[in-house]
Simulated scan of single mutants.
Amino acid sequence: MPLAAFVQTALTATEQLPAPAVAATPVGAPLRRTVLVGEIATRSAANAVGTAQLLSEGPDSDTIGELYEMQGAFVKQLWKIDQDWRAGLMRIYEGSLSLRKANTLSKVIEQDFNLIGQYGDLATNYMTSVATLVENTNVGYSYWLSKKIKAAQAAKAAAAS
């Protein structure tokens, strides 16, 4: 099977399979998580194959520029998430220093659980932000890639006629 046909098959399969498969299957949270991670992995694999196809056809400078812009935007968002994580950890650390000021067991326990709750909130926000970034990037890149591949195929067909 030629590379172009393989890529088209992979892109078509990822566009059609995940939504119906996920919607039709009532599953519990752990299995649902597995299905969703598999969906992202499938789309990522199709994106990798599509990117290889696009780059193998000698992309123009606009395409390369757009790729760099997308990478830069992704890194910028990841950097912001990291900065929020570090700032949150610093707030929790500073809060832990106040534990020394508590003079009763009930106050120490209250402060301990407050810090545990703050860490849980921070971890939840971090993981949710990273997952959102990965999902949005994956879907957005897939859409951009499919448009670029279709445009390249149309240009190739026009040049052949």
Rank of each mutant, 00 (worst) to 15 (best):
P20Q: 05
P20N: 04
P20W: 04
A21H: 06
A21S: 04
A21Q: 04
V22A: 10
A23T: 08
A24T: 02
T25V: 13
P26K: 04
V27N: 05
G28Y: 10
R32T: 02
R33F: 12
L36G: 02
V37S: 07
G38R: 03
E39Y: 00
A41L: 15
R43N: 02
S44Y: 03
S44G: 09
G50R: 09
G50K: 05
T51W: 12
A52D: 09
A52C: 08
L55N: 01
E57K: 07
G58D: 08
G58R: 10
P59F: 05
D60R: 14
S61D: 11
D62M: 04
T63C: 13
I64E: 07
L67C: 00
L67F: 10
L67M: 13
Y68S: 12
Y68G: 01
V75W: 02
K76F: 11
Q77P: 00
W79C: 03
K80C: 01
K80H: 04
Q83Y: 06
D84M: 08
D84A: 15
W85E: 06
G88Y: 09
L89I: 03
M90P: 00
Y93T: 09
Y93W: 14
Y93Q: 14
E94F: 09
E94D: 09
G95V: 03
S96D: 04
S96K: 01
K101L: 10
A102P: 03
N103W: 07
S106P: 00
K107V: 00
I109C: 01
E110P: 01
F113K: 09
L115K: 05
I116A: 09
Q118M: 13
A123Y: 12
A131S: 13
A131E: 12
T132M: 09
T132S: 14
L133Y: 07
V134T: 04
N138M: 08
V139H: 06
V139L: 13
G140V: 04
Y141F: 15
Y143E: 13
L145G: 04
I149G: 05
